[in-house]
Design a protein around this nucleic acid. Structure first.
Length: 404
RNA sequence: GGUGGGGUGGCCGAGUGGCUAAUGGCAGCAGACUGUAAAUCUGCCGGGUUAACGCCCUACGAAGGUUCGAAUCCUUCCCCCACCA
């Protein structure tokens, strides 16, 4: 356990600045983690990520299991070596795919049966099989297999999903212990052919320890969230906590309110990871409510679709008004796109369908969020986070950006 | 000169008597995107007026005609393409 540590450097209200140590390096928090679902942060090279200042990145068990397969990646020496990123990595379990692949999956107590979105083939994910996949991938932090539901789900649905996630957490823990002891493959009640075929135990273990993060679910229902957080908190000496099932369709005030509920229940001396968030304003709001780690596809996906984060709100680079605009995306930004290219040129790249445009906007947006969290961290450390966040949010929401 | 084919909204291209201000696609304009089935998706897209429904005007090369009614049928003319002389 010595490979992982979390040191709090400063706390102002619920906001915290800390250092999260992993086998592949330290993450200074609060931090934004870019998402590289398919072992690549779309359109960006690991060298770009380093230059941007990204510290830790995400990848995904479901997607990598289907293609190219977690075993292949294991045989390459794990994700770090496969994708040539030597910093910390976190893998998501596929729990989000339970949510996003509705119609291609059926959930039961034992696990989830997926229809591959690639070729329609059947796959079964259980807490046990997911732990094995995540072990093969070899990330530093692995997320439990959980059940994500739409944000506005009613309480009974949220309760079912949350309680199932808790039961699955216990199975994840048992599976990890079994895997780490080199024991026999985990037993599930799924038909044998659904289990990972041809797997020989003991697997070559990653050469570093992995931290399993539990995930707090419970929808937008405070009592459920409180229950889940307490139940998890009291069930083990966790190295960190995931907060899941937010930014999935609920209203923002609900998300912020739930964060406050969870913040009050989780131990302060462990990192909290708010899954799937987010937009710049949500990062700031999250920091104020005790979140240390964030991830989101927004900067890269929106970058590929022409949307740009700026200090003064969002802009859409495809707008006609930018055709002749010689200014950078964001006058205060020092990313490679802003230092070198005009809005007019970037607009041209998008209109002409040139791939450099996708890359530069992805670069800028990720840089924006990474830098935003660095600024928040600095503000926490010097005690100005309240004023800083107030000013930051007011200006971002004013959205003066399109007035040229 | 002859024969055949064709001229449709910014472009390409359906439509061959009323359901057509006219399918599609492209271009254009705007919006969305939160643990990535996404370099994707959605809306608008002749003009005027309207918050909207709607109403009016103009429109399928040109002119004329048949018909209650024409982008669609007939006549003449103009232009384009192919082949033949």
């Amino acid at each position: 356990m010595t490979a992982f540590a979390f040191e709090l450097e400063a706390e102002i209200g619920s906001a915290r600045a800390g250092r999260f140590a992993t086998p592949h390096g330290v993450v200074e928090t609060p931090a934004f983690m870019p998402v590289g679902t398919l072992a690549t942060v779309k359109a960006l090279d690991p060298v770009d990520l380093r230059e941007i200042g990204a510290q830790m990145i995400l990848s995904n068990a479901y997607h990598l299991h289907l293609r190219p397969s977690d075993e292949l990646i294991r045989d390459f020496g794990g994700l770090h070596r496969f994708m040539n990123w030597d910093g910390p990595i976190l893998t998501d379990s596929g729990g989000f795919q339970v949510f996003s692949l509705q119609g291609l999956r059926t959930v039961s107590e034992d696990g989830v049966e997926f229809r591959s979105h690639i070729d329609g083939s059947k796959h079964v994910f259980t807490p046990e099989s997911v732990m094995q996949i995540e072990r093969n991938l070899g990330a530093d932090v692995i997320m439990q297999f959980d059940h994500v539901i739409p944000g506005q789900s009613e309480e009974s649905v949220a309760r079912d999903a949350s309680e199932r996630s808790l039961r699955w957490l216990a199975r994840c823990v048992a599976a990890v212990e079994l895997l780490q002891s080199g024991g026999p493959p985990p037993i599930t009640t799924i038909a044998p052919k659904a289990q990972l075929p041809g797997t020989v135990f003991p697997l070559p273990a990653p050469s570093h320890p992995q931290a399993l993060f539990p995930i707090v679910q419970g929808g937008i229902h405070a009592s459920l969230r409180r229950e889940a957080a307490r139940s998890i908190r009291d069930s083990g000496n966790w190295l960190g906590f995931g907060i899941g099932g937010l930014s999935v369709g609920e209203a923002k005030p609900d998300m912020y309110r739930i964060l406050e509920v969870v913040d009050a229940e989780l131990p302060r001396n462990r990192p909290r990871y708010l899954m799937g968030v987010g937009f710049p304003e949500d990062l700031v709001e999250g920091v104020l409510r005790g979140v240390d780690l964030f991830d989101c596809v927004a900067p890269t996906r929106m970058g590929r679709n022409g949307a740009v984060f700026t200090r003064d709100g969002r802009l859409n680079i495809k707008r006609a008004e930018f055709r002749t605009d010689p200014r950078p995306l964001d006058a205060e930004c020092d990313c490679a796109a802003c230092l070198r290219f005009s809005r007019g040129y970037l607009r041209h790249l998008f209109i002409a369908d040139e791939m450099l445009g996708l890359r530069l906007l992805s670069l800028h947006n990720v840089h924006f969020l990474v830098r935003l969290m660095r600024a928040a961290r600095a503000a926490i450390r010097d005690g100005t986070i309240d004023a800083w966040s107030r000013e930051w949010l007011a200006r971002y929401h004013s959205r003066q950006v399109t007035t040229a």
